[in-house]
Amino acid sequence: MFGKLIRWPNLVFILLTQSLLQYCVLMPGFVQSDHHRPLSLPCFLLIVFSYVALAAAGYIINDYFDLQIDQVNKPERVFISLNGISKQQALVSYWALNLLAIAASIYVDIKTNARMAGISAAICAGLLYYYSLSLKKRLLLGNILVAAITAWSIMVLICLQGIQWPFFSDNFHLERMTQCTFLYTLFAFIISLVREIVKDMEDVPGDIQYGCYSMPIAWGIPAARVFAIGCLTVLLMMLLITGIHLGASLSWVFRLYCGVFILLPLLHISHQLLKADTTADFRRLSQQIKGVMLTGILSMVFFLF
């Protein structure tokens, strides 16, 4: 029950994203560029733990505040109840996870002299609380916040390791590494934003009943659908331009993988969004978007070769 409450598959996504970024994208770049400030394994594991714990706490507090809404939208996914996890147990777990996450990040600051991991974790915890309390009910702001925190879980690793985003540097390996990290950050932000909007379209019945002002409610589902498709179009164009720009530096296997497992599914999702109309349609699309998130994450493996 507790694993379902904290959405353990989504936590695996965070662990996988940060691990593959660190050891498939960043570490090879550090080695080739003679960069001497990579995180040690213990510090890296603490940062991963911190963001996994922050996300788990975020899911708990979101369910805590959305208990009535979820009983309308997703009654089968209500885990805080008399027959499951009590409200008191949920709150104790929430505070414990946040405190452990912030403590782990502060320890990394002490060991690395980074001076930003603890503040970053505390800000993320506060923003996720504010999102669950009220921001998610406001037009687009909550969607952008969740997408930004998702993207930050990628950026934080490069910021903690002394890289100042040298997009145009004399060091080819450092430049390529930072550009790739920024592209993955943009990918995470845009696709997370689209998924949040699709989930809002799925949750319209309960959101209307309890006064939420999400995009599908404020603008209508057709307008929200167009906005989501527009975001997907931007993402597709970004990926295509990147592929053309990098050209021969990308292996044909990597390009084939991205075409089959990222670009084509994104096109399919865009097409399905045009026709989606029921809660079941939007729930299915949300799962498909999560699948593209996974294939995007796994594409980092190719940077080892």
Rank of each mutant, 00 (worst) to 15 (best):
C231D: 09
I297L: 10
I217G: 05
A101D: 14
Q71V: 04
R284Y: 04
L39Y: 05
D109P: 07
T178A: 15
Y131D: 01
A188Q: 14
L15F: 15
S93K: 00
D170R: 06
V292F: 05
A224K: 05
K136N: 01
C159M: 14
K290F: 07
L45C: 14
D203F: 06
M27C: 02
A103R: 08
N83S: 10
S50N: 01
L127R: 00
Y131Q: 00
G84Q: 09
I60F: 01
S153F: 12
P75W: 04
P9E: 12
F305V: 04
V25P: 10
P205M: 04
P222L: 03
E76Y: 05
R225H: 00
K111H: 14
C212D: 04
I106R: 02
V301E: 06
G230K: 11
F79W: 15
L232C: 07
I229G: 07
F2R: 04
A114C: 13
F182K: 09
D200Y: 06
Y129K: 01
G3N: 14
Y59T: 00
L246D: 13
R138N: 15
L145E: 09
K290V: 12
K87M: 09
G126V: 03
Q164F: 10
E76R: 08
R283Y: 11
L160S: 08
F167C: 04
A90R: 01
L39Q: 04
W8H: 09
S105N: 06
T17C: 07
M155P: 01
D34K: 15
L264Q: 03
A117C: 12
N171F: 03
F65W: 02
W165M: 11
M155S: 13
V301T: 12
H271S: 15
V48D: 04
F167W: 13
L39A: 12
I262Y: 08
D281I: 10
S251M: 02
N10S: 14
K137G: 03
F79C: 12
L256T: 14
Q272S: 12
D200A: 14
I149P: 04
H268S: 07
G291P: 12
M155F: 13
T242K: 10
I6L: 11
A188K: 10
M201Y: 06
L11A: 12
K111L: 12
M293T: 05
V204G: 06
I14P: 00
C180G: 03
M215P: 11
Q161K: 04
P265C: 02
L157C: 05
A151Y: 05
S134I: 10
G126M: 07
S169E: 09
T112A: 09
C180K: 13
L160P: 08
A103L: 14
I14V: 15
C258V: 15
A55W: 03
K275W: 13
P222R: 00
N143M: 11
I190S: 11
L100I: 03
I61V: 13
L267Q: 00
L285M: 06
F172G: 09
R77M: 06
L135C: 11
L99P: 00
G211S: 07
L236W: 05
R138D: 13
L5Y: 12
